[in-house]
Design a protein around this nucleic acid. Structure first.
Length: 419
RNA sequence: GGGGGAGUGUCCCGAGCGGCAAAGGGGGCGGACUGUAAAUCCGCUGGCUACGCCUUCGUAGGUUCGAGUCCUACCUCCCCCA
């Protein structure tokens, strides 16, 4: 990618300025297309989970910006390819899911997308096709003859994703090996059906995308383009969107809004600017101002990041509630209504609920054994008072307005609500 | 088909003369320091009705007072020969 390239299209301008661009097959050509206002682009998402998590957020934002700058986004559901598995960068083959699971997952993912994109029938409305529509109908012999003949096994073997697996002596099944052919075919098919000329994705998808461009040329499609975004890690090298508790889901039922807000609030200093550009839509000069904050002041920038990023997914109202809950909890030490809560029968507390069980029930610790250890390490608190004795009991006296606050460490809190 | 090697704590890697709840790391969690950051230091990192009990070393049997460790069969993976 040449550094001196000055995009004329809004789309590429935004991408460049905000740090979405890693690699592009033909920046100038794509710029021209984007400027014409008829750019149709797609990103593929597999349906291995019931929702999307932060790891996919860059791609989601790419599609959102595309639509905002006058293009037509296609969020391709990999209903067909999910049945196969992608060797790219993965150390292990992925599990094969049942059709029912895949269908359910697709619904969840659709819900997330509708928060970021405008769907419809219009020229610039987003669409969400499923490659099962065409892959399912494929006939093996026909596929080999029409599509398979264009693939060079020599070249496929030379691809990094494949080479890695071979060098490490890791099993690469024929099934998985075919993944890239199917993905390439998707690109061509989307071009036929919807005039899609650009496939975007994370940088690990570069090889697969290029293969699609190649196939397009051989099968007589017009010039196709590839554009990848950088693979995101945090400043200290961890993968985005994963915590010990699991993925940072974009679905409220899988991750409370409060926790989502906290995820961003707790990012590393060095990531704030980068994340503001990628995951919020604040103007760049505002971001530059926030980024310039030093020392403890950077916390203000993190709060803005958290609230803005949360608002994108869960709505501004919910984001502000999470922000307020955090303020009360951390800055005032007060009891905030909107912390994650679980309900518990009044009778149980009346009878005296052991601390150990209480924390297990709240899901803050996995077992009473862990609860004991945490108490030993001074990690558990009831209503902000450190639990000293593992035989302590939570009673009605601990409840204020029928609520008891349980904490693990300084950051994780759960309310016990008596019902 | 023949010969050789490997599979360990349900996050991962990895030691393990027949007494082993099993070394060491990484990761994670908690504590201290800070700014709800990073770095650093310290502690914890099978389960339970808990000075005891129960379940763990690919699977199933066997030897033994006692097996991750020895024997047998089986499964899986890797290497060499064909």
């Amino acid at each position: 990618m040449s550094d001196d390239f000055r995009p004329a299209s809004d789309f590429l301008a935004v991408l460049t300025e905000r740090g979405f661009l890693h690699q592009c097959s033909d920046l100038a050509g794509l710029d021209l297309l984007a400027k014409s206002g008829d750019l149709v682009a797609y990103i593929g998402f597999d349906c291995t989970a019931a929702s999307l998590h932060v790891g996919s957020l860059v791609q989601i934002m790419l599609l959102r910006w595309l639509q905002k700058t006058g293009g037509k986004p296609i969020a391709l559901m990999g209903g067909g390819t999910t049945q196969v598995g992608d060797p790219s960068g993965k150390d292990e083959s992925r599990k094969i899911l049942t059709l029912e699971t895949i269908a359910a997952n697709k619904d969840g993912i659709k819900r997330i997308f509708s928060k970021f994109l405008t769907f419809g029938e219009g020229r610039h409305d987003a669409i969400m096709p499923d490659n099962a529509e065409w892959l399912g109908a494929l006939n093996y012999i026909e596929f080999l003859r029409e599509v398979g003949r264009h693939f060079s096994v020599n070249r496929m073997l030379a691809m990094d994703s494949v080479k890695m697996r071979l060098e490490r002596d890791q099993e690469l099944s024929f099934l998985e090996f075919n993944y890239m052919c199917l993905q390439a075919y998707d690109f061509v098919e989307l071009h036929r059906r919807h005039g899609c000329v650009l496939q975007m994705g994370g940088s690990d998808q570069w090889g697969n995308i290029i293969t699609g461009i190649d196939l397009g040329r051989r099968m007589g499609a017009s010039q196709l383009y590839a554009l990848t975004s950088p693979l995101l890690t945090t400043a200290s090298g961890a993968k985005m969107g994963k915590t010990a508790q699991g993925a940072v889901w974009l679905e409220e039922s899988m991750l409370p809004v409060f926790d989502y807000w906290q995820y961003w609030r707790n990012c590393e200093d060095q990531d704030v600017g980068r994340f503001l550009k990628l995951f919020t839509e604040l103007p760049l000069d505002e971001i530059a101002r926030l980024e310039a904050l030093g020392g403890a002041e950077i916390n203000e920038a993190k709060k803005v990041l958290a609230t803005e990023a949360t608002a994108m997914v869960h709505g501004r109202e919910a984001a502000l509630r999470a922000s307020e809950a955090a303020r009360k909890t951390f800055e005032e030490g007060a009891l905030a209504e909107s912390l994650p809560a679980i309900e518990i029968a009044r009778g149980e507390v009346e009878a005296g609920l052991g601390v150990l069980t209480a924390f297990v029930k709240a899901g803050l610790v996995a077992s009473t054994g862990e609860a004991r250890r945490q108490i030993k390490g001074g990690g558990l608190k009831i209503n902000d008072r450190t639990v000293e004795d593992e035989r302590a009991v939570v009673g009605l006296g601990d409840a204020t307005d029928d609520v008891v606050k349980l904490s693990l460490g300084r950051k994780r809190h759960v309310l016990l609500k008596l019902v």
